[in-house]
């Protein structure tokens, strides 16, 4: 279980990315969108990145996060 206090924020992030699968956000951008502190978001995003739910894209100074869609198998 991840640190419980971050759970609601994680859920919010997941819901955001899931609803906007082609959103590309920096921590600051997401902070504005969700109205949450960038500091907490950073922790959450790193966590989501380890779980491969989001990934970092782009080069250079900006760290941009995007959603990684789950794989789908039709039988």
């Amino acid at each position: 279980m991840s640190k419980a206090e971050y759970l609601p924020l994680q859920i919010e992030c997941i819901h955001f990315f899931e609803s906007n699968p082609f959103a590309f956000e920096t921590v600051e951008g997401l902070s504005t969108r969700l109205g949450k502190s960038p500091k907490e978001l950073e922790v959450v995003l790193v966590e989501l990145e380890t779980l491969a739910i989001v990934e970092k894209v782009g080069l250079g100074s900006n760290e941009i996060y995007r959603y990684v869609q789950p794989v789908e198998e039709v039988l």
Binding site: L51, A52, I53, V68, P70, V71, E72, E73, V74, L75
Partner: peptide
């Protein structure tokens, strides 16, 4: 139409 599996991390 057909069964589906959605997955992550596999």
């Amino acid at each position: 139409a057909a069964p589906q599996l959605y997955a992550r991390g596999i």
